Amino acid sequence: MLTLLAPARHSSLPGLPFPGDPDHYPHCDEVVDYLRRYAARLDADIRTRHRVTTVARDGDGFTVRAGNGATFAAPAVIAATGGFSRPHRPALPGLGRFTGTVLHSAEYRTPEPFAGQRVIVVGAGNSAVQIAAELAAHATVTVATRALVRFAPQRPLGRDVHFWSAAHFWSAAVGSDHLPIGHLLRTKPASPVVDAGVCRAAIVAGRPDQRRMFTHVEGNTGHWTDGRTDEADTIIFATGFRPNVSYLDGTGALKDGQPRQSRGLSTTVPGLGYAGLEWQRRFASATLRGVEGDAAYVVTRLATTMSPVRRRCCQPIG
């Protein structure tokens, strides 16, 4: 089962500590339960089943429309759909004709349905390696990467990496997790896998094995750079996500589908902010720990740009 990279003590939102041992790494079901309880405690008008379809400028404010017909007027908008809403699946030669099953890590739940299969997991990050290591107890698994998987210790000097990242003396400025830990974790071509040693031991043992990315697929067969071929039942892409902010199309806020922003504030649309983007302000920006500081920063900056008349809650129209 997938777990958070940060321990419970670094995964709490304001006003509600994450339950359990503060040093344990919560699994996905714990996170869902925690977020549901947090939402229930908020004194906020939370509208579910209101998927936003368009955001448009309206004078010095915005009109927001949802797919169910609801329309809202707002002096400012914060796009908080984050950077993990749209699974990214790269186009690879022959993939469209692959006769097996193709999944994204967003669709992966448990290893049991893959028992006895030949599985290729594409990716070199934490999700790819965690999924591959878990699957290897049930299936024959290969991790396919463009560069060799690299590892970073999860608890250097006995403390979780998020402790060091949050420590003030690691920061170039207050609230900035960029130096030096942040840049070490953001190196190219791929960030290292933060690991307590379990996944690294699995790859060293060859379960799963690791190979450079296959060149193409024919039918159900993957062709590798060294000339080998392997039949595969399933290919799982753990190749990341892209922000799902298509509702901002037409506002001038996007370039090639990506937000044009600096530290969570739109550089092209006054009154527009973001929350939850990867590296929005720091290493932790897209995590439960980091979103609190980023949200406070964006709200404060947006408030300073609004007149007292505009500082009102968004209002339904009609």
Rank of each mutant, 00 (worst) to 15 (best):
V309C: 07
W170A: 13
G273K: 00
T305Y: 05
A76H: 10
W224S: 08
I203M: 14
D230W: 11
H104M: 04
V217M: 09
S246P: 01
V77M: 11
G264M: 07
R200S: 03
H168S: 07
R212T: 11
L277H: 11
P75L: 09
V217E: 04
R41Q: 08
A196P: 04
A238K: 04
R186D: 13
T229C: 10
P189C: 12
W170T: 14
P75R: 12
S171N: 11
Q261S: 10
F18K: 04
G273C: 08
R89I: 14
N126A: 07
R200I: 01
H183F: 15
G227N: 11
L184R: 13
G20L: 06
A296H: 11
S127H: 02
S11R: 00
G222N: 01
G273M: 07
A80K: 08
V217W: 13
R97V: 10
T142A: 13
H223R: 12
D23S: 02
Y25Q: 07
S307N: 07
G227T: 15
L302E: 13
G240K: 09
T234A: 02
T99L: 08
H216F: 05
S285I: 08
F241E: 07
Q258P: 00
A106F: 15
E112Q: 07
G125Y: 05
M1H: 06
A202D: 06
V141R: 05
Y274D: 06
I120S: 10
H223K: 02
R281M: 07
F151C: 00
T215H: 04
R207P: 02
R146G: 11
L277R: 07
R212M: 09
A139I: 04
S191V: 02
H27S: 09
L92W: 12
R49H: 13
D249H: 14
G69E: 10
L95A: 14
T225V: 11
R89Q: 12
Q315E: 15
D33H: 12
E112K: 01
W170L: 06
Q117V: 02
A275L: 13
W164K: 05
V149M: 09
R312K: 09
W164Q: 07
W164V: 10
